[in-house]
Structure formats: structure tokens, C-alpha cells
Nucleic acid binder design. Sequence first.
DNA 1: CCCACCATGTAACATGTTACATGATTGG
DNA 2: CCAATCATGTAACATGTTACATGGTGGG
Lengths: 178, 178
Amino acid sequence: MTPTAAIVLGLLERLGEASAYDVKRAAERWLGNFWSTPHSQVYRTTEQLAADGFLAARPDTTAGGRARTLYRLTRRGRTALAAWQREPLAALPELRDPALLKLHFGADLGTLAGAQLAAHRDQLVAYEARQREDTGAEPRGPWLTLRAGILHEEVWVRFWTELLEGAQGGPTRRAVGP
Amino acid sequence: MTPTAAIVLGLLERLGEASAYDVKRAAERWLGNFWSTPHSQVYRTTEQLAADGFLAARPDTTAGGRARTLYRLTRRGRTALAAWQREPLAALPELRDPALLKLHFGADLGTLAGAQLAAHRDQLVAYEARQREDTGAEPRGPWLTLRAGILHEEVWVRFWTELLEGAQGGPTRRAVGP
DNA sequence: CCCACCATGTAACATGTTACATGATTGG
DNA sequence: CCAATCATGTAACATGTTACATGGTGGG
């Protein structure tokens, strides 16, 4: 079960019968915070899952609008999703941030830290705004992932801010202390 | 310039002439902290960079040992690396953590948070040990990326700890406050 | 001398990214 | 009615992952 497959199954459970495009929009709305899934990926995955019997596909016949395919979970899909939800997960993600690569290889601190700091600040503001919109009524999952995003953005802001301040102090000083 | 290409060029600048395997080991040592690069990827990239004129390749002729190819930067490679280092970078990384997916889709909090917490704690301990080994003499880049790793692990530990405590309080309570 | 592990690759396949194409819908 | 945008896909290519293959080397 690849992450994308889990996303499609999980969202279709919520959406009932839906098109690949619907799934893509739901993914943006609910997961866009920490996981992006290009639409081409979603189309490929729905097709694959249907071929493997996890989804049932049928053409949409409603009058008007372009032809499209609707999907819904089969019993098998539901079972697979539930099994995936139950499995624990000990694997850790990598930071894998290109900005850290540049930092490692000696990019100019002021330039890099300035650009990153601005971008992370914007992201943090956007997340906080979204968090304020949250009524607290919906399931906890989405709220918690948003909180994770906020915590990490706070760390990035702190990290690049310290670097920037250190860079202003001159290149011979150590930027941050232990 | 893909990230992998930048890694290969950056490491070869440091290593002088080296084999793909040497580059892979250096990547593990220096970048393993936040970026993994499977050896197959490194072999493909050195070959590609050589074909494009960024690296010069020559067979290793030293007696004994298996035949292998040694690479070094060409002038063009050096120029490309310097240009990459100068470019600012405003793009942000995604968390893209499978554990957050499970969390979003309602995995059991106790199980998931327990497994993640243990793994992140181990990682944090390992990073802190490595940081203590650091003499402070080497270039700052590697030290700074290690620090970034530590800050993020601390956040993860905090995040999953709060969830775990919230889960013990019972599923009707909100796990964490704003 | 043989087994395990290091070193050096190649190959197949899955995933992710980018670009192309084109039919509806809607706002100006 | 035209342009922009939403919706619905397909295709090509790059990257990442996993598995295979096999030659050296060093320790028991």
C-alpha cells in the first residue's frame, strides 16, 4: 500500500462515490498542508486501484458535463484501508530540504537565510490563519496535522532567523550556540 | 540542476578525484542526516554528469582491486556548482510524513504515537551524540544541518508526546490545546 | 578455504513531475 | 462571444526504490 493509494482510499471513504478530480481536490483541501499529490498521480492511482479490485468504477451518465469516471470503495478496498490504519509505523521521514543542501555546501548565508525565512514566515501565517478558522467540530486528524505543520514552521523560522542574525555578526563568529 | 547532481558536484569538489562509491559514502557521512541517496542513484548521476561535461571520467588503473571509474570536476562542473550555490532558494519542503497520513485518516492514536515517539527519540539521541563529537573545527555547513535535524526531532518528540498524553486522557478530550 | 561483507555496477519497476490536449463553464 | 479557468484526462521523462549480479578481501 503506497501512500498515494492510502490517500485515495481514505478520501473515497469520506466522499462516497467520486471522480478522480474530486479526490484530487479533497487531497488539496485536507492534506495539502503536508502532502501534495499532482492530479496525474491521482488518475493513475484510481485506475490502478480499480484494476486491482479495491475500487469499483462506473461512467458518469448524468446529462451535461464531460464524460468522466466515478469510483467508490469495494469491500476489499475498505478492508485494505482499515488494515493500513491499524498498522503501526516506526519509519521516520527525512527533512530532505534543498535549502539545507545549499547550506551544507556553503551557500551565502544572508541570501539563503533571507529567502527561506520570508517563505517560512508566510507559510506560518497562512497555517495560523487556517487554524483560527477551525471550529473544532470536525474529526481531530486534520487539526492535528495542521498543528504539526505549525510546529515545524516555527522551528524553521527560528532556525533561519538565528542564521541570519549570526551572518550579520560576521562570518568569523559562530552563528548559533549549542 | 537536480539536488542529486548538486550533491555529486559538491562532494567531488571536496573529494578531488573519486569513484561513485566514494561519493555515495561521503553523502552518507555528510548528508545522511537529512538526505539519503541510494548508490544506484549516484552511479546514474555521475554517468550523466560526465556525459554532459560536468565531470571528467577515467578508468582506475591502480594494480589490484576491481576495475572502477574515477571522476573529477571539470571547469564547467565547477562553474555550475558555484552558480547553484549562489542562487537563492525560496521553495519550501513538505513534511510528507506517512505517519501524518495515518493520523489524518484516524489511525489509533496510542499505537501510532507510541511507535513514532520511540523512533524519534532514538533519532534525537543519535543526533545529539553526533553533535557532541563535533569539534567545531570543520566548516559550519554540516554542523548547521545537524542542528536543523535536532530542532525538528525535538518538535516531533513534543508533538507525539502530547498526542500520547492526550490519548491516555480518553478519546473524547481534545488532545492538545492551541 | 570459505563466509561475510565491502565495492561496483546493472536492471526493472514504481513514483513523481511536467507538459500536452481538449471539452465545459462562466464572467466580462 | 471570447478569454480565463475548471475539469478530465494522456504522455514523456526524471527520479527514487528494490532487486539482481558478481568481484575482491579479510577474518575465523
